[in-house]
Structure formats: structure tokens, C-alpha cells
């Protein structure tokens, strides 16, 4: 391989994709070797810079561990909180159901009383004469059909 590495081949080289021919060429070609070395040096500088920056900015571990540990205790308390919240919700949900049942019972009682009253009214209305006049009806009874026949003869 006599040609220099292309831009794409240099990037592929850095990823680790290289052929034996390319490796041989880089060993012999100072230009390609220098290009790869320059890129590797820039990336190494970047790595060092990030690590240096991170080292300066990093919080002290113990306090971070402590804060994580304090949060870690959370899950043990969390189920209790959820249980209490669920219980409160159940109570709140049960109140309308209880009230609804009471209302229904009351309405049923009212309906029963209404039915009874209506039956009594029906019984009163279905009488031929009012109850105080019933003894008179028994005393003065006439044959209604014969009276009509007599009227027709006349």
C-alpha cells in the first residue's frame, strides 16, 4: 500500500478498524504516522483536560454517599406513606357510599309509606257511599232495574 491514508481511513483507524496493509503503511509513512500521532495527542489532551476539570469540580465522596444513603432509607418509609395514603383514600371513598346507602334506605321507607297511604285512599274512593252513610243504604234498598222498567211503561 503506497497511498496515504484518507481522512475516512484515519478516523476508522482511531476506531480500531485497520487492515494489515494500512498498519504497514503507517509504520513506513512518516506523514500518516504524524497525522495519527497528532490526533491521538489531541484526544489525550482532551481526556486529561476533562479528568483534570472533573477532579477539581468533584464533590467530596463522603457527603455524597451520606446524602445517597439518606435517600436510600426512603424506600423503607415510602410503603408506610403509601399505605396511609391508600387508607385515607379508602375512608374518603367509603363516606359517599355509606351516605348513598343511607339515602336509599330512607327513600325506600318513604316509598313504602306512600304506597300504604295510596292504598288507603283507594280503599276510601272505591266505596259507593261515604262510610257514615252506609247504615242508611242498608235500610233503604230498592230494585234499581224494576224502577227503570216502570218508568218505561208509563
Amino acid at each position: 500500500m503506497s497511498q496515504h491514508l484518507s481522512s475516512q481511513e484515519i478516523s476508522q483507524w482511531m476506531i480500531g478498524e485497520r487492515t494489515p496493509q494500512q498498519e504497514q503503511h503507517v509504520r513506513q509513512c512518516s506523514e500518516c504516522g504524524a497525522e495519527l500521532a497528532r490526533l491521538q495527542a489531541a484526544l489525550a489532551l482532551f481526556r486529561g483536560s476533562v479528568r483534570h476539570c472533573s477532579g477539581r469540580q468533584s464533590r467530596s465522596e463522603p457527603s455524597d454517599i451520606a446524602s445517597i444513603l439518606s435517600v436510600r432509607r426512603g424506600p423503607r418509609i415510602q410503603p408506610m406513606r403509601w399505605a396511609l395514603a391508600a387508607a385515607a383514600l379508602l375512608v374518603l371513598a367509603a363516606v359517599p357510599i355509606y351516605r348513598n346507602a343511607q339515602d336509599r334506605q330512607r327513600q325506600a321507607e318513604i316509598a313504602r309509606a306512600d304506597t300504604l297511604l295510596l292504598e288507603q285512599v283507594d280503599a276510601e274512593v272505591s266505596r259507593a257511599v261515604p262510610r257514615p252513610m252506609e247504615p242508611l243504604v242498608k235500610l233503604v234498598s230498592w230494585d234499581f232495574s224494576s224502577t227503570i222498567q216502570n218508568e218505561e211503561i208509563r
Partner: peptide, 14 residues
């Protein structure tokens, strides 16, 4: 945390 804090923090910072 002791083993991996530095790496995770560094990656997050970068």
C-alpha cells in the same frame, strides 16, 4: 459509590 463515583461524575460533567 467509592469505586465508580469519579467515572460517573466525570462523564456527567463532560
Amino acid at each position: 459509590v467509592h469505586l465508580y463515583w469519579t467515572r460517573v461524575f466525570r462523564f456527567a460533567l463532560a
